[in-house]
Simulated assay, not measured.
Amino acid sequence: MHKLFDSFAGWYDFHTPPDHYFRDHELVLSLAAHFGQGARLLDVGCGTGVLVEKAQVAGFDAVGFDASAYMIDVARKRLRESSVWVQRMQDLATRDCYDIVVSLSWCVHYCRNVGELRATIARMNESLVPGGRLLLQVAHGPNLPAEWAEDREIGPTGLADDVRLRFRFQSDATRADALSANYAFNCASTGESFNETHQLNVANANIIAELTRDAGFDYVEIWNSWRRDAFADSGNVFVTGVRRAY
């Protein structure tokens, strides 16, 4: 497990505050609303549980899981214990259970290869009721800049710009569909820091859309952003589809 999700999980809500991705969360809630109050929502790779909490407050029957026990420990500070649990997405085994399954923040790229991702999307399909909605937030490597970017946030003592997370995404020379994601974290007031590289696999929205169709989804689309606009120039996109009703 990477430090970002493991030994530094307690810092996650500092460098990525709960409202950091509020537009993405609004998209999820608007899609869930199509199924009405009490819609059953599963967040695959739920992290610290921010989306699950927002969905529950909005009146949905929301749960989630994450492969990191450290992230789930943080999530259980804001949610009841039964709402979140430790599990790999590759091991999802529920059937005909959820109205909407979502996986944000590029979680699916931690599948090792196309075959494992294909199997994981098929498991997501099986976990949905017929007519249920899948939403995957994915990276499209060809559209991502290779330069470093940086987020600066308030630290644990209230100091501005105390917590910094630098990141960049570069093509992996060994695999055409993979990205190397470099992360550098630092908290000035505590002196805590880390640098690490993650491999993001199958970082191509067109390939993932095809895998989604092959898994039994209809109406598969790639959205350029949370606005649901047509896929164009974004490197951070959404692949969505509806489980085929037989």
Rank of each mutant, 00 (worst) to 15 (best):
I121P: 11
S105V: 12
Q87N: 12
V237G: 11
R112V: 01
V220Y: 07
A176R: 14
E116D: 00
V101N: 14
D6I: 04
R78Y: 10
I222T: 05
E126A: 03
G131E: 09
S234R: 04
W223Y: 09
T48N: 06
E153I: 06
N143F: 11
C97K: 10
W148D: 10
F8Y: 14
V52I: 03
V129S: 01
L211D: 00
K77W: 09
C187E: 15
S127H: 11
G47L: 02
T157Y: 07
F185M: 06
L159E: 15
V237H: 08
D91Q: 14
I207C: 05
E53I: 08
N224K: 00
T16G: 03
F217M: 02
A93W: 13
S225L: 00
L134M: 04
Q199I: 13
D151E: 13
G155F: 07
L104G: 10
V220H: 06
T190G: 04
H140F: 01
N125Y: 10
I121W: 12
F238Q: 01
S83I: 08
G115K: 06
V28M: 03
R243L: 01
W11P: 12
S234E: 07
Q170T: 14
A173V: 01
L41A: 03
L211F: 06
V86M: 05
D66M: 02
R243A: 02
S180E: 12
C107H: 15
L31Y: 13
H20M: 11
D13L: 03
I121K: 09
G141K: 12
R123E: 01
A178I: 02
Y246T: 11
N195D: 09
A178H: 13
E81Y: 06
D91I: 00
A203Y: 14
R152N: 05
A33C: 03
F185I: 02
R166H: 07
S82F: 08
Y12E: 13
H20S: 12
V108M: 12
S171M: 08
D66F: 02
V220D: 02
D162L: 00
V220W: 09
I222R: 04
V114S: 02
R244N: 13
V163H: 13
H2Q: 14
T212I: 04
S127Q: 05
K3W: 11
L92Q: 13
H20K: 14
A122Q: 07
G36Q: 10
N143K: 09
F194S: 06
H25R: 12
R227M: 01
V202H: 02
G131M: 10
Q90R: 04
D214N: 15
V114T: 05
V44R: 12
Q37P: 14
V237T: 11
A209P: 05
G241Q: 07
P130D: 07
Q199E: 15
V44W: 14
V50F: 10
A209C: 02
G241Y: 09
F65P: 07
H2V: 07
A173L: 11
I121Q: 10
R152V: 00
D218M: 01
Y110H: 15
R243G: 01
P142K: 13
I222C: 03
A230N: 11
A55N: 02
V237E: 04
V242T: 00
